[in-house]
Amino acid sequence: MWVKAVEIIVSPILAFVIGLFFMGLARKITARIHWRYGPPITQPLIDVIKLFTQRSVSHGLLFDMGVILSLAGSIALVLFIPFGGICPLESSGGLLVILYLMLLIPLGLALSGGEGANPNISIGISRKLMLSLGYEVPFLLAVLAIMTHYHTISAVDVVRAQEGFRWALFSWPLVLPGLAYLMILPAMLGLRPFEVVQAPQEIASGPMVEYGGKYLALVQIEHALAVFVTIALFVDLFLGGASNPFFFFLKMCVIFLLGMFVNAVFPRFRIEQAVRFLWRWPTALAFVGLVFTLLAR
């Protein structure tokens, strides 16, 4: 009982630290690939501290509440994802709840941005929702392949069924959905070539154009948690989780480095090019994988 309470408190903090570490690592690796030095790894923490000391503007009540809703959704989401043996809220609906709580995050930012009456925000939000529709198609097919193969809707059961190096990525019905998920990982994290939502040079950072001060700090924290959640979900479903948090963290690092190498060298797609790509090759791979999974039974 006390262990559970400690897990519930420690999980989001650990997720926040790891997310922030990944964001700092991202800037350092991108800089080194560009042949320059780059900021220190603790730079996102410095950014968040600076942002909390700035006095920003507010456009209304929903402007505040939307950001709070988005961050509350990501913190609640972290509690449902198994993290190397720690899973505070396991028996409350499984993967379906995770998939649906992931809806709260863009919805909160969309509602808050709608009240900041700026056309750049509206364009950014519409691009964000269109990109989400783009990557959700192969993502859902891949997750359904996992759920059908292991015949369960609970993420903890999926992790337990892959114990002892029987990872899903290396079993022949599920390798195609795994590859499809790897292909859409930059889209889910908002990295290039799918960075079309923020697009600083086109639409002045889209939904974040009116955020300053503490709003931007909360959005940075939420971005850190979102990075953690997405990569942790992939490691749980396809790489077999881990028995303790340290190995889980190592697996997350490997996946993150792959995404970061792609981010450092690619330019940006337009939104219809991005959606067309996502509905073509990853969807085809995940679809074929789902058919294989059905036939394997």
Binding site: H34, R36, Y37, P39, V57, S205, M208
Partner: peptide
């Protein structure tokens, strides 16, 4: 701000919106 004289190591990055800048 690019690779030759890297300003990011000082923490200086360009942002697109004045609401985010100091």
């Amino acid at each position: 701000i690019t690779a030759r004289w890297d300003a990011e190591r000082f923490g200086v990055i360009p942002v697109s919106s004045p609401r985010q800048a100091n």
